[in-house]
Amino acid sequence: MRREELALSKTELAKAAGSSITMVSKWEAGMTMGIEYAAKICEKLDISLIWLYYGGINSSATCVTTKIPIVGNTQAGPDKEWFNLDFPAGFGDSYIDFPAKGRNVYALKVIGDSMAPRILEGEAVIVDPDSEPATGEEVIVRLESGDVMVKTLAAIRNGQIFLDSFNNGYSRMTFPLSEVSCIHPVIGVARSSKIKTA
């Protein structure tokens, strides 16, 4: 393992990534790492981003598309029609050039300041519905009511989901899991300048 070869602790790697020791352990156990974290870690590990994110020099072939469709915003989210189309690659009026492993990766434009300054209004969150959400990381939550939001997953327990905002001016949100349609992990954030029109 590269971290051990360099005699780096999980604490040092977590600090470099801007994440937690728990997440480092999960990444090392095989959980998919968001490319935003990989970009921060590769310099610390003195390896290429492609090697770290895709697992080796030849595995970049698993990158299905670099055009991630923006299919809605964090207030409206992807409409039900889009979900029913089984996440078609490239479907959207605007997109972000971004290396993605799976064809189902999508993006949402951020509305509001609840996640500022971590994620700013006008930026886009890149979401992988095929990855597992992790406590302490950003997620997109869609409720059965149709409401969609980007939040930090604080906990799931006793049949409820607890969501935090990065902006301290917002209170913790709690919903029964029965009201949650889906929880998808955010794997990256694209600045507004990276958003292109199809």
Rank of each mutant, 00 (worst) to 15 (best):
K10R: 15
K10H: 14
E12T: 05
L13N: 00
K15A: 11
A17I: 05
G18S: 03
G18I: 02
S19N: 08
I21A: 09
S25L: 11
K26W: 14
K26I: 05
W27R: 00
E28G: 04
E28C: 02
A29Q: 06
A29D: 13
G30T: 07
G30K: 11
T32E: 13
G34A: 01
G34H: 04
I35E: 03
E36K: 10
Y37N: 06
A38Y: 07
A38R: 00
A39S: 14
I41D: 00
C42T: 06
C42V: 11
L45I: 02
L45C: 08
L45S: 01
D46Q: 12
D46N: 11
L49V: 03
I50L: 09
W51K: 05
L52S: 08
Y53H: 12
Y53C: 03
I57Q: 12
I57A: 12
S59Y: 12
S59A: 12
S59I: 04
S60D: 14
A61D: 12
A61H: 11
V64D: 10
T65W: 04
T66Q: 15
P69D: 07
P69H: 12
P69Y: 09
V71T: 10
V71G: 05
V71N: 08
G72E: 08
N73E: 09
Q75K: 14
P78M: 10
D79F: 13
D79N: 15
E81N: 13
W82N: 00
W82P: 02
F83C: 08
N84P: 03
N84C: 10
L85R: 15
D86Y: 14
D86M: 11
D86C: 08
F87K: 04
P88C: 04
P88H: 10
A100P: 01
A100G: 13
A100Q: 02
G102R: 13
N104Q: 12
Y106G: 01
Y106I: 04
A107C: 07
L108I: 01
I111G: 00
I111H: 07
M115C: 04
M115F: 03
A116D: 07
A116F: 11
P117D: 05
E121G: 04
G122I: 10
E123C: 01
E123W: 10
A124S: 11
V125K: 00
V125G: 01
V125E: 01
I126D: 01
